[in-house]
Design a protein around this nucleic acid. Structure first.
Lengths: 136, 136
DNA sequence: GTAATAACCTATAAAATCAGTAGGGTTTTA
DNA sequence: TAAAACCCTACTGATTTTATAGGTTATTAC
């Protein structure tokens, strides 16, 4: 399951996607309209900025905005930045790979199954973007 | 990601699948051969038993065995018993559904995306069984 | 140039979950 | 009746999650 933080991140991104091309949006606005605790949201937006998904501007008239088009931000990217691995096992993770102890990767049946599951999930999450998400 | 407990469960089940139709297997045997902490494994096997996947026999010659054919135990079932929901959001979970606050389910784009992802993942996890997993 | 605005940074903390351990109790079989 | 093996309840330490607090820095308007 996605953490609450990740769900907040998606809401914030959806909000920013709807304001793409317009003025930057203040944290406080997103916080109120999307009902996300303000100080928590600060961290989230900062994480997304560090991942190069957002850009920010300080001072009056400042705020956050998507750095790239919402149609270029896929859901897998967001999940990886905020939530972590998408795969069900570390040994089948593309971005957070870890060798599993006591297991021969070539022959491990569990691994084979989780690879197939990962591919199926990724096929969706890498294809769908913020634009798909905000289409009503 | 699957918890360690779930990974242990899969290993134990694979072990039992390989002994399907034979004598019951003792916890201690599984613990040693699969390198799973014994007392932790006790809990896991008990959970699987309560979920009707295993049957047990006490006393000498006792142990655990699959209650049904390994070809009838799919991976989704196991994950749900030990790990919990497979869906990425509570509001798209079939077995652990929870309404999300502040969100109209009909119109929520995040929900729509996660539904599609869930279906893709489940299609694999509900189709693949312990038998698929132990095929070398 | 200074006051207001709004993002940025670091530290802390309560609550929940995870990963086990401890120590007996109960049932079955020989 | 004793050994074998599962069964049950409670506890614990570590980690992660979900925040909150409080100050710092950069930008803009006057």
């Amino acid at each position: 399951m996605l953490s609450k933080k990740t769900q907040y991140a998606f809401r914030a991104l959806a909000h920013l996607a709807e304001n793409y091309g317009k003025e930057p949006v203040k944290i406080s606005n997103i916080s109120i309209q999307q009902k996300i605790p303000l100080k928590f949201l600060e961290h989230i937006l900062n994480d997304l900025k560090k991942a190069d998904l957002l850009e920010s501007k300080k001072g009056k008239g400042g705020g956050y905005a998507l750095k790239i088009s919402p149609s270029k931000i896929n859901l897998a990217t967001v999940i990886r930045v905020i939530n972590g691995p998408i795969a069900l096992l570390p040994c089948v993770s593309l971005n957070f790979y870890e060798k599993c102890r006591d297991c021969n990767e070539e022959s491990c049946g569990m691994r084979k199954m989780m690879l197939i599951a990962r591919d199926a999930t990724l096929k969706v999450l890498e294809k769908k973007t913020l634009t798909d998400m905000i289409q009503e």
